[in-house]
């Protein structure tokens, strides 16, 4: 019993240690966001500002039309999530569980498409979008999500490959159609991976900067990450204002994650059924 307690204490100690690395910068960011510049530039640094400036937040709110950008970002993010949770499980299944000639060689192509840096793909992609009349729309931002992103396809494939073939074979022997096998057997078993895809695509779309920057030339279409960039100007950074803006920008995602993380716990309980 006491050994178990000791073990638990050890787990907590390690958790706290690693959490410090991840969390202290966040606390520091919040602390800086509440400071005036007299307290920002202090050595040694002060954790809790003597003079708490909530006005940094009102200033950050006033500097950009936050609500407008929030609605825009909800659109792009929502569409991206829908696109990815439809496309990635399907395409990943084709590469991970369905058997067809040349599959693994074609799969290398999936990975290869991730390898070119944006600085060379940006211009051809932009000129293509321009030809289709997609500039100032969200189409070039979210269409790739509906057609399958390599990272998510790869992720789903890895999880499908881990499923025992016998489960699917048993259903096939019972006369089930291939789509039914996918929908009723395979897909439910990789639910944690699908939740993961949903989460990542939400976060990436939320924080995507380059895409909206290039494709959206009208301020009424802008997203939050573009709004954030307004706080770094050509003359450097106002640290406290920028930190306040960054905190505002992540709050919706924090709420989303806190709600979604239940599904991961669910996922780990599912494993008992499977084994």
């Amino acid at each position: 019993m006491s050994k178990k307690k000791l073990k638990r204490a050890g787990v907590y100690a390690l958790l706290l240690l690693v959490a410090a690395f991840f969390f202290i910068p966040i606390v520091w960011m919040i602390s800086t966001s509440l400071k005036g510049s007299d307290e920002v530039f202090l050595s040694p640094p002060r954790w809790i500002p003597k003079n708490i400036l909530w006005s940094n937040y009102t200033a950050a709110f006033e500097a950009i039309p936050y609500l407008k950008y929030l609605l825009n970002t909800l659109q792009t993010t929502g569409l991206a999530v829908i696109g990815n949770i439809i496309s990635a499980p399907m395409i990943g299944y084709a590469f991970g569980k369905l058997k067809w000639p040349g599959r693994d060689k074609v799969f290398l192509l999936v990975i290869a498409t991730m390898m070119l840096p944006f600085s060379v793909t940006m211009i051809p992609l932009y000129s293509m979008s321009a030809k289709f009349g997609w500039i100032n729309t969200y189409i070039p931002l979210v269409l790739p999500d509906f057609l399958g992103k390599s990272y998510f396809i790869f992720l789903m494939r890895q999880f499908y490959m881990n499923l025992p073939d016998e489960l699917l074979e048993a259903a096939r022997i019972d006369g089930a159609g291939e789509f039914w096998v996918y929908k009723k057997i395979a897909l439910p078993l990789v639910k944690p991976a699908v939740v993961t895809v949903a989460l990542f695509s939400a976060v990436w779309s939320w924080t995507d900067f380059m895409g909206p920057l290039i494709y959206l030339n009208r301020a009424d279409k802008w997203t939050i990450s573009l709004g954030l960039s307004q706080f770094t100007n050509t003359y450097g950074v106002d640290w406290s204002l920028l930190m306040a803006a960054a905190v505002i920008a992540i709050v919706p995602m924090v709420i989303l994650f806190f709600c979604l993380q239940r599904y991961f716990i669910e996922g780990s309980m599912n494993s008992g059924i499977k084994g």
Binding site: W28, F209, M243, A246
Partner: peptide, 17 residues
């Protein structure tokens, strides 16, 4: 949530922090 929080921060804000 604590471990994941930094990944919600945009890469630009991450660099700045």
């Amino acid at each position: 949530t604590m471990f994941y929080l930094p990944s919600i921060v945009s890469p630009v804000a991450n660099a700045i922090i």
